[in-house]
Design a protein around this nucleic acid. Structure first.
Length: 361
DNA sequence: CACTCGTGGAA
DNA sequence: TTTCCAAGAGT
């Protein structure tokens, strides 16, 4: 009888979570949760969408701005598209913002302003996939759904020393995670596994010594934690080239274009220019006295590098080229642009400042 | 299933 | 400097 029955790993994890849960703006702490406080499904949904492939540090300020400006899903549903896209600017993956609005309007119109509790019903909403549906059902409604994100994949791969590479091993890892999902406090369990992955079972240099699962963890026993999970190698990123045309009118307005909903930076404002590629078309989008700006903008997207040359011009105050939106000086906020476009703006303005300094010297 | 789709921080 | 990576979804 030397083999004492191993404590239930899920129970061990919940005990750890009760004392180590991260303090996050959208989270109901475990003590409050146990006292009966329910999370606001709107905030759970909003945070989960923002957190898709995005770090907590990057999300926090956006979450505060969104919830202050639009405190309920119905308020968000009534927002202007352009306002939501501008508020999302800089966070990336802009399809999330477009789907966020679609989803808010669907919840408002089709569900009376209340998020459905059912995992399958949630899956039918725009921007809610397998992970987010499970996360909302578990965290907001305490349904015993299994969440599978990058954290859970990594923790399960190590706990069970699974060497099959992702994404192929995903269903195996999901099964291992499902076995651990408890019927009591499934919402806290889901958040606990993700907290564990974010703070202890990290991608590099996991802190196995202080892990609540150090005893049952196979990878720790075998010394393989650092190399798990395995992943199939990514393709190298090619470099594409582009030209951005930055025009300012004599009345101070700048000329931007609203990019089509589909594709890169879809739905966002940007400087006009040719499609990015190996050798972009040199033809300006409209006639003007274009000047080359020295230097270039370098930016890396998910699957390619971009080198962007800049051309600038001053237009008459009554200029209004087809397909472009003149935005008045006092309404224009560079922060409302996606990062690559904001970089172009910043280089333009700093070059203009240098130029005027030279002239006045 | 494979590919597209952003960004910033860490090593 | 480059690579890796983060609470993925849509097509």
């Amino acid at each position: 009888m030397r083999d004492m029955p191993q404590a239930d790993p899920a129970a061990t994890l919940l005990s750890w979570y009760d004392t180590h849960a991260r303090d996050l703006p959208w989270r109901v702490p475990p003590q409050d949760r146990l006292a009966g406080v329910r999370p606001d499904p709107y905030r759970v949904w909003l945070s989960e969408v923002m957190l898709q492939q995005t770090t907590v540090a990057a999300v926090k300020d956006y979450f505060h701005r969104f919830t202050r400006r639009w405190p309920t899903v119905e308020a968000l549903a009534g927002a202007e598209d352009a306002d939501v896209m501008a508020e999302w600017a800089g966070l990336g993956y802009y399809a999330r913002a477009r789907n966020l609005l679609k989803c808010a309007r669907a919840v408002t119109r089709d569900h009376g302003g209340r998020f459905p509790e059912d995992h399958v019903a949630l899956l039918g909403l725009p921007g809610i996939g397998p992970y987010t549906a499970a996360a909302i059902a578990a965290i907001a409604f305490d349904h015993p759904e299994t969440v599978l994100d990058g954290n859970v994949e990594r923790v399960m791969a190590r706990l069970h020393d699974i060497h099959d590479p992702l994404p192929g091993a995903k269903e195996t890892l999901r099964a291992r995670a499902a076995e651990l999902t408890p019927r009591e406090r499934p919402g806290d369990h889901a958040q606990a596994v993700m907290d564990l992955g974010a703070t202890i079972c990290t991608p590099r240099a996991p802190a196995c010594g202080i892990c609540p699962w150090r005893d049952p963890c196979l990878a720790r026993a075998r010394g393989t934690a650092a190399i798990l999970p395995r992943k199939t190698p990514k393709r190298p990123k090619p470099t594409r080239y582009g030209i951005a045309y930055l025009a300012e009118r004599e009345d101070g307005a700048v000329l931007l274009e609203r990019r089509p909903d589909k594709g890169l930076l879809g739905g966002m404002l940007g400087w006009p220019g040719p499609e990015w590629g190996d050798a972009p078309d040199e033809t300006p989008p409209f006639e003007a006295d274009w000047r080359e700006l020295p230097g270039e903008v370098r930016h890396t997207f998910t699957h390619f590098h971009l080198v962007l040359r800049l051309r600038c011009a001053i237009l008459r105050a009554d200029a209004s080229p087809d397909g472009l939106e003149p935005i008045a000086r006092h309404e224009f906020r560079p922060q409302a642009l996606p990062t690559v476009m904001r970089k172009a703006h910043d280089l333009w303005r700093s070059a203009a400042a240098d130029g005027s300094r030279v002239r006045t010297d």
